Computed example of a mutant assay.
Amino acid sequence: METSSEKKKIPHMTITRLAQYLNCLSLLPREHYKEISSKELAAKIGLKPTVIRQDFHHFGGFGQAGYRYKVPNLIDGLERILGLDQKQNVIIVGVGHLGQALANYRNFEKLGLRLVGLFDINPRLIGITIRDVRVRDIDEIPGVVERDNVAIGIITTPAEAAQSTANLLAHAGVKGIWNFSPVNVAGPAGVIIQNEHLSVGMMTLSYMLKQSHPPEAQG
């Protein structure tokens, strides 16, 4: 159950874990999991039950202490907290390999996202259609943002174009930027920016593999 505590400052890691809980719960077979305990959920994610209960406490606890959580109610509550019950129009800027992969990601709709625009500067890409959305020149971004009330701009451009793209999106009126370029971007106050770095995850995995399977010493 959501309470006024949602208006308080919630730790970023708590929000990240809420997304993990929702993802896990959404994949459970509904016929077998009508209810779930914090211990069961923790075992599936690799956390301590106390962490889950503390996270839920920020939002009223999602039920009575000592009782199992009803999975449908828990999913609905997490979706509301994460804003997935509110449909958001999004556009993608940069229609290279990564941009096209994201455009073809069919779970966007489950996240409450509706792709309404694709943009690039490459004349060979402008005019093609991906999932019924035509690729346009970036000069058309302001008009599409205003016409379709676009809330989120996704950046998949090369590094050298990322910040100028973020500036263009912010000036056009988007409220959030999801940046997949190799560099961080910044924006004005009021524009929320999420910088993703795929290479960071790869390097972290590489380090962990090296620690668990050290290379044999050369003779």
Rank of each mutant, 00 (worst) to 15 (best):
G112C: 11
I177H: 00
I138M: 11
V135Y: 09
V135I: 12
T156Q: 07
E146A: 15
E140W: 12
L168A: 08
G190N: 15
L169W: 02
N167F: 10
V191L: 05
G143A: 13
V144H: 00
P188F: 13
F119D: 05
W178H: 09
P182Y: 00
I154F: 02
N195M: 06
A170H: 08
G112F: 11
N122M: 03
E146S: 10
T165L: 09
R136H: 15
N149A: 14
N184Y: 04
V191W: 01
V145A: 02
V116T: 14
V135S: 05
G190S: 12
P158E: 13
T129I: 09
L115Y: 10
T165Q: 06
V144R: 03
N179L: 00
T129M: 03
R147I: 03
E146Y: 03
H197R: 11
S181M: 13
V185A: 05
Q163D: 12
M203R: 06
A159I: 09
R136C: 13
F180K: 02
V200F: 04
V135F: 12
D137K: 13
A189Y: 12
N149K: 11
V133P: 00
S199A: 14
N122H: 08
I192P: 00
I141P: 03
L118G: 06
V185W: 04
I126W: 06
G176V: 07
D148A: 02
I130R: 06
H197Y: 06
P123A: 13
L198I: 07
A159V: 11
P188C: 12
A189E: 10
P188W: 12
G176I: 03
V144T: 13
L118D: 00
N122A: 02
A166H: 00
G127R: 09
L168W: 01
P182I: 09
G173H: 04
P188R: 15
I193K: 06
H171R: 14
V133K: 03
A162D: 04
P188E: 14
G117P: 02
I192L: 07
S199P: 02
L115H: 00
V145Y: 10
A162E: 07
V133E: 03
S164V: 12
L125N: 14
P188Q: 15
A162C: 02
K175I: 07
I130A: 10
L198D: 00
A186Y: 09
N184E: 13
I193Q: 05
G112Y: 08
G187Y: 06
V174L: 05
A172V: 00
E146N: 07
A189G: 14
M203I: 14
A189P: 11
A151K: 14
